[in-house]
Simulated scan of single mutants.
Amino acid sequence: MVEVIYKTNLDNVDWHQMKSVLRADAFDNGRTAAQLKKSFENSYATCIAYADNQIIGTARVLSDGVCNAYIVDVWTLTIYRRQGIARTMMQILLDKLNGQHVYLFTDDAPEFYKKIGFTEQPVGMAQVIGKWLVNE
């Protein structure tokens, strides 16, 4: 098994590589490499997993630093799934959120999140303001 390195800083992230691997693994929501960079830089905390200097996982959290946090962009490259990588990234982020209400949205992995202590909430709502990813 290959060694996985978890980084919580954004030093030397290859944003074009991230964009490419997300697209190739069908986890691309349309952000450009520059938008990915801005998204991660504006986060409260981040975790990027690497194997052989290649990005194989991401997770980040948005937070007010006091009482509310929202976990987004949790992804593990398909060939590395079910090896504890997402669980480790989540734990790294959750360790930074003591005392906060942590929320996330998932439509394809609820059982995974239940296993690490999340409970389903009865109502969630969303709205896109303007056109998706057009915010300048």
Rank of each mutant, 00 (worst) to 15 (best):
D64H: 01
I48G: 01
N9D: 15
Y50W: 08
N42M: 12
K37P: 03
D25Y: 07
L10C: 05
F40Y: 14
R31G: 06
V66C: 14
G65R: 07
L36V: 10
N53Q: 14
D52Y: 09
H16G: 10
F27T: 01
Q54G: 03
A59I: 02
N68C: 13
V21D: 02
Q17P: 07
I55P: 03
G30V: 06
Y70K: 03
W15D: 07
Q17I: 07
S43H: 04
S39T: 13
F27G: 08
N29T: 13
R31P: 10
K37I: 02
Y44K: 00
R31S: 11
I55W: 00
D11R: 11
Q17L: 12
V61Y: 00
V21C: 04
V66Q: 10
F27R: 11
N42H: 10
Q54C: 09
T32Y: 11
N68V: 11
S20Q: 13
K37E: 15
Q35G: 10
H16W: 12
A69I: 05
W15P: 04
C47R: 00
D14Y: 04
R23F: 14
V66M: 13
D64R: 04
T58N: 05
Q35D: 11
G30E: 10
V21A: 02
T32A: 09
I55E: 01
M18P: 00
N42W: 02
N68Y: 14
K19S: 15
S20N: 12
Y44P: 00
M18R: 05
G65D: 07
T58P: 06
A26D: 14
L36I: 14
A51D: 07
K38W: 09
G65I: 06
S43K: 01
Q17M: 15
F40W: 06
D52L: 06
Q17F: 11
V21K: 03
N53F: 10
A59G: 15
V66P: 03
T46Q: 11
D14P: 04
L10P: 05
S63C: 09
Q35W: 08
A59M: 09
N42K: 12
A33N: 08
Y44V: 00
I56V: 15
S20E: 14
A69P: 05
Y44R: 01
